[in-house]
């Protein structure tokens, strides 16, 4: 493996779910993730944005093998982990960790902070003596700025932000190389959101983490990520370095998403691109370009085939057949 090889490499990933069925129900397939490819370099943070239901969580979970992908390959540290079983994954697990969106559902309500944060050690390093384990737990709590006085409390005794810190401590205790953060701040108040974002930035620098950071908030993603991928109905529709993306949004959906995000500065009033309708059902996406049903630039040709992800500028790929709709620097 060369030093420049990406830490994570996803190629043609598909994750489908069967729904319905039963006696009389028709069986359908939700194509939650459809033909997704990307690579994340060591130390890089890739952002993933999109509306709810666009497949962000499904993709994030597949990448750390919380599910068995339908097709495609996932390489981690150069090794194909797509089909590895539970046992084979076990030694790899500590190096890739996951932070959950819901700080209330992701901590076991019957365990103390000590047990929750220490669980990775209990599972992966059962031979560790209690003193060493306690030391590591204390260290992890310190990283997330929680007091050791909280060690023997239960999750319900904490606020949302504090719980999210506990979740982060659990993810960091094994010193992972790769972290998937699935909307870690969406459930939090803005002021707490800023605390957690600052914390993530600090630990990223301290530990040299590589991250896949999922959010529905473009501003949050922009603040934290080196590169951003925009998802729509299971596909990446635009991927570019953050700055390049915000300087020039090339996909009509990225433009709409961007312009819909309200800005807290009343002196900055941007023209709105109002999308009509909702996200189409993933059971019956439109033919051709899936965004066609809401796109104001749609042409008849958009209905014929799924547009390929083509490189519109160096490092800036977009899944749209039109090249004349780019939106200049915002603001």
């Amino acid at each position: 493996m060369t030093a420049g090889a990406p830490l994570v490499e996803v190629t043609g990933l598909r994750q489908w779910f069967r729904v319905g069925g039963g006696f009389f129900g028709r069986q359908d397939t939700v194509r939650a993730v459809e033909d997704v490819s990307f690579a994340i370099a060591r130390g890089e943070v890739l952002g993933l944005v999109g509306e709810s239901g666009s497949g962000k969580s499904t993709l994030g979970r597949a990448v750390v093998r919380m599910s068995v992908p339908t097709a495609g390959t996932i390489r981690f540290e150069g090794r194909d982990i797509t089909r590895l079983g539970r046992r084979a994954l076990r030694p790899i697990r500590p190096r890739m960790q996951f932070i959950f969106q819901d700080p209330f559902a992701s901590l076991n309500p019957r365990m103390t902070v000590r047990q929750i944060v220490g669980a990775p050690l209990a599972i992966q390093r059962p031979e560790l003596d209690p003193a060493a384990r306690a030391g590591r737990v204390a260290e992890a709590l310190q990283t997330v700025e929680l007091s050791p006085a909280h060690l023997d409390r239960y999750p319900h005794e904490f606020s949302g932000g504090q719980r999210q810190r506990i979740g982060i401590a659990r993810a960091l205790i094994m010193e992972p190389r790769f972290l998937v953060a699935d909307e870690p701040v969406s459930a939090l108040d803005v002021s707490i959101q800023a605390q957690i974002l600052n914390l993530l930035i600090a630990v990223r620098q301290k530990l040299g983490l590589t991250m896949l950071f999922i959010s529905h908030d473009l501003a949050v993603v922009g603040h934290l990520c080196d590169r951003v991928a925009v998802m729509y109905l299971g596909r990446i529709v635009e991927i570019a370095p953050t700055r390049a993306l915000f300087r020039c949004l090339r996909h009509p959906y990225s433009q709409a998403l961007f312009s819909a995000a309200p800005v807290a500065d009343p002196t900055l009033r941007r023209p709105r691109i109002l999308l009509t309708g909702d996200l189409p059902s993933p059971l019956a996406p439109p033919s051709g370009c899936a965004f066609r049903s809401r796109c104001r630039h749609a042409l008849p040709a958009c209905a014929t085939a799924v547009p390929p992800l083509r490189e519109a500028a160096p490092g800036h790929a977009v899944r749209c057949i039109r090249d004349d709709v780019a939106l200049g620097p915002p603001g």
Binding site: V190, A194, L197, I201, L218, A219, H223, V263, P330
Partner: peptide
């Protein structure tokens, strides 16, 4: 506390 989208200053300062 709110991050802003400004391609020039993106992510340069902590919130």
């Amino acid at each position: 506390s709110v991050p802003r989208i400004d391609p020039e200053t993106l992510g340069s300062a902590p919130l």
